[in-house]
Amino acid sequence: MITPDYARRMAAYNAWQNRQLDQAMGALDHAALVADRAGFWGSILGTANHLLWGDRMWMARFGVGSAPEQGLPDSPALHPTHATWSAERFRLDGRIALWAEGLHAVDLAGRMRWYSGAAGREMERPVGEIVMHMFNHQTHHRGQIHAMLTAAGVAAPVSDLFLMPEA
C-alpha cells in the first residue's frame, strides 16, 4: 500500500509544516492562541495540542515513546503555552523522523490491533493504512490551524507538498 520512502517523505513534510506553524503561532499573543475560534478543538493552541496528542498516541502504538496521559477529550489542554507545545512538537517531530528512517517494507505489512478510545472498541487495520491515517490526520488538523491563523490576521504558511524544500 505504501513504502518506507512515502513515510519518510511525509515525516519530513510534517516537520516542515510544524516548523512553519510554530513560527506563525509565535506571531500571536497567548490570548489570541487560546481564543475560541469555533474549531472542533476550540482554539489554535487547542487544535495544535490535539494534533500533538494524536501523533504521540499513534507513535506509542507503533512502539515509539509513551502515550499521552490525558484522554482524547482533554487533548486540547495538553500544553498550556505555545512555548511548551513548541518544545514538545520539535521533540516529537524528531522521533517521527527517526522512526520513519528506520522503516522497512515488512514494517508496513500485516495488520495492527489497538484499542480506540474514540471508537470505544478494539480496532484492527492494515499497518500501512494506519500510517497513512496518521499523516492524513496531521494534514487535516494543520488545515484547520491554517484557517484559524488566517482569520486571526497571521500570514499562514505555505502548505503545498511540491513546494517543500529538498533536504
Rank of each mutant, 00 (worst) to 15 (best):
F162W: 13
L28E: 03
G110Y: 11
G102C: 04
S86W: 10
R56E: 13
M132G: 09
D107N: 07
T81D: 11
G143I: 10
Q20C: 11
D22K: 09
A97F: 02
R19M: 06
D29K: 09
L103A: 04
R113F: 10
P76G: 08
M164D: 02
G65A: 08
I145D: 01
R142N: 04
D74K: 13
M134L: 13
A118T: 14
A38Q: 14
V131A: 02
F62G: 01
Q138R: 02
F90D: 09
I44H: 01
E122V: 07
G65I: 08
M10F: 12
N14M: 05
A15Q: 15
P157D: 05
L108Y: 02
M57A: 14
W53G: 02
S75D: 10
G39E: 08
M59N: 05
G153F: 09
A105I: 06
H140C: 14
R95M: 09
D93H: 03
M132W: 07
S43I: 01
E122S: 11
M59S: 06
Q23M: 12
D5T: 07
A7Y: 01
E69Q: 15
A12N: 01
A97K: 02
V64Y: 03
M59R: 09
E69W: 12
A24I: 00
L72Y: 12
W53K: 03
P165N: 14
T139W: 04
W53P: 03
A31K: 13
I44Q: 01
E88K: 14
I44L: 03
S159C: 13
A15C: 15
V158W: 07
S116C: 09
A24H: 02
D29E: 13
A119Q: 14
Q20Y: 05
D29P: 09
A87V: 07
A83I: 04
W114T: 04
R37E: 00
A105Y: 06
I96Y: 00
W114D: 03
R91Q: 12
G110L: 07
V158R: 10
E101H: 13
G42M: 05
G110K: 06
H133R: 11
L72Q: 10
L45I: 00
V34C: 10
L161Q: 08
M57V: 13
A67E: 09
D74P: 07
M59E: 12
P4H: 02
L28H: 06
R19E: 05
L103E: 05
G94L: 04
H104A: 12
A100C: 10
A167P: 13
V154E: 05
L103P: 02
A105H: 07
L72V: 12
A147R: 06
L72H: 08
L28I: 10
W99N: 03
M10S: 12
A32P: 04
N14P: 01
A109R: 14
L52F: 10
L51F: 14
P165A: 11
A100S: 03
D22F: 07
S116Y: 07
T47C: 08
A15N: 15
G117V: 14
T3G: 02
G54C: 15
L45R: 00
N136W: 08
R61W: 11
A147V: 15
A48T: 06
A35H: 08
G71W: 10
A11K: 01
Q138A: 03
W99F: 15
A7E: 00
M148W: 01
A27S: 12
V127M: 15
H141M: 07
T150E: 14
H50W: 08
